[in-house]
Nucleic acid binder design. Structure first.
Lengths: 219, 219
DNA sequence: CGTTAGTCGTTAAAGATTTCACATACTTCA
DNA sequence: TGAAGTATGTGAAATCTTTAACGACTAACG
């Protein structure tokens, strides 16, 4: 498995899950074929960009026809490893953590939150969104071989927890705290900073007025 | 006010709130000066990129010295319009919406959620995180001149609500639903798609292994 | 079967962003 | 005051990403 070694550009890689989801939608709706133009309208990505993205994986479509939804979907399912579920841990069962636990990722997705940790005694032992909550003290013991963690703790605790996650063998962290955590270079961290996203939107509104001609999409 | 018309690159603009927050931290800690290298360690952005970013606003630092924290902070405060608070509405008081309402944006930030809307009768009239919850039916009536909305409704409702927000005169939407909403070209939408972020992280972990030499940061 | 309309895959160009590397100028300290 | 050390601001190069444009091929239909 894997002569797919002509490294896909990062920008493309980030769009793959988006494509996958919409292909799923189309498939559910019973659509058999789709053009880059149609897909473009749905996901708000330029159609040339979509064709270019797909082309990194070879010739997936047919000229004059478009793409076969079923085929494309099954191709991306393999590419995105949708067949095997990735097990995820969530640290910090506050408001945001709870939101994640109640969000049914597994539905369109290869990821499943299997365990949650919190420091608040009152939450330990309970279930939130069907996921058991363990005490943070038991992190190392109960993490097992889970390799991805969602970090939704107070930012003051972020670096400390991250260090423990790294020691426990985590490979990737989705960090929702405002803290920019430091990790060894073999661990990948993606930051999603909600306050910053909001501020950035406000900044763009003030300083990058959209006129009638422009049509902008986000990050 | 605004001869700052040499358009700042978007990539730079997105980092400004991040810089601002860390400068605030430094200032609180009583630091008087900071170098691009130090800032780089803190925010995980290459120091040359930081210097380049700052340079778009003119010469803010001093050679051989670095940047004066106080000065830089007050400069960015003006640039990011931190003096005037931007009023924000939140639509959809579910788990994620509640998380936002309990998140104290105003603290380091020029934004304040002033009103929330929901369709669930049980929530109407209550306060969440100090913000009153109104019925979604009263959206147009009670939105007033608020120009930014956070959308945390079920994705099936996203487009419909977005249409109403646009009609009510909104300028920007921070969309947390998986739906890619369509809006007129004079309305700005930023999408934050939590499931996709998680999937993308998983994809990067499998296909872009970090070795000892590389050090990656996300956007 | 031939013609028209449609759509891909790709080359090439343009645009955006990051990074290198260094001249320049400030700071510090003896 | 002068020498050594530091860190900026930026020109130039490198890298990454998007977009335009079009040749080649397919589908569909009369």
């Amino acid at each position: 498995m894997d002569i797919e070694q002509t490294k896909i550009p990062q920008a493309t890689a980030k769009r793959l899950p988006l494509y996958y989801r919409f292909l799923n939608n189309l498939h559910t709706q019973g659509k058999l074929r789709v053009s880059s133009k149609e897909l473009s309208d749905a996901v708000k990505v330029d159609s040339a960009t979509i064709r270019r993205d797909f082309s990194y994986f070879g010739a997936l479509g047919k000229k004059g026809y478009g793409y076969n939804v079923e085929y494309l979907l099954s191709f991306f399912r393999k590419t995105l490893d949708q067949d095997e579920t990735t097990r995820v841990a969530l640290i910090g069962v506050g408001n945001l953590g709870t939101a994640f636990l109640n969000y049914n990722f597994t539905k369109n997705n290869n990821t499943k939150i299997e365990i949650a940790f919190d420091a608040n005694e009152e939450r330990i032992g309970s279930e939130v969104g069907g996921v058991g909550v363990e005490h943070i003290d038991d992190l190392e013991e109960k993490l097992g071989d889970i390799s991805v963690a969602i970090l939704t703790v107070p930012s003051s605790a972020a670096q400390g927890i991250a260090d423990r996650l790294v020691k426990a063998g985590i490979s990737g962290i989705l960090n929702f705290t405002p803290a920019r955590i430091s990790v060894p270079s073999n661990v990948r961290v993606h930051h999603i900073d909600l306050a910053i996203e909001l501020q950035a939107l406000v900044y763009f509104l003030k300083h990058y007025p959209l006129n009638e001609e422009e049509m902008e999409e986000d990050q």
